[in-house]
Amino acid sequence: MAVFVPTSLEELLTARAERPGLDLVAGGTDLVVEVNFGRHRLEDVASLSRVPELGGWRREGPAGPGGHLVLGSGLTYTEMLDPTLAELLPSLAQAARTVGSPQIRNAGTLGGNLGTASPAGDTLPVLAALEAEVLLGSAAGTRLVPLGEFVTGPKRTALAPDEVILAARVPVARGHQEFLKVGTRNAMVIAVCSVALVLDEQARQVRVGLGSVGPVPIRALEAERFAAEVVDWSTGRFSGGEADLRRFGELVGAAARPIDDHRSIASYRRRAVEVCARRALERTMSRQAA
């Protein structure tokens, strides 16, 4: 039998240990496309959809700053839109809503987005801006890898052949979050570029993740440092002027490493992340008082 449907994490990890490189499929929104198109010859494959340990999300540690949210790799995009979670991670919910169609959001998972590690993976810039870590597990144990070390290149990750993505571990941050994605259709479109912006009022940090403008999700560190200076940390709102927004946009644009491809051209992508970044920062001004 070539399709395994393990019903516990232990069963899954054992299978993966016995067959290193065993294909893993959750929502199928990436892998099954490759199989359908004859680009991936399926041998043995394990379905993750019936492993309860991979589903859902939970809090770890304190509820506020200092605590973490542990998002199971089986969490679907639709589940990211659940109001309770969306309130904690609004930028993740905003990103999830841009993924494909309702059908795709019902099937596709956080773990799949991480495992595929496409430069256009919609949750990746958000996870970058949230400073998420990826929890990997194997029969030998678990390890936590920062997102920036997990995604090693376009569609390349640090996942070992005997490992499985268990979860993303996200520090709880208080502050405004934004996600903007540019595509040439109003829905169901691969990102031409995307910008995630996360304010961390505790740490007094502005963190910016960029998608589809480089081989991996990019953090715009210089722009982040600049932005931290133009936020009024007593309100958590941008407090600068037009020139600051422009400067912030330029710094974000400078961090991008876009290319020309069939979806867009590099010069547009750079311009678009500039525009989206300044709009994201500007939107913190309209934030409702917490």
Binding site: E178, F179, N186, A187, E282
Partner: peptide, 10 residues
């Protein structure tokens, strides 16, 4: 607005 689900519009 233009951009739809991507929430890009100002």
């Amino acid at each position: 607005l233009p951009g739809g689900a991507g929430r890009t519009a100002d």
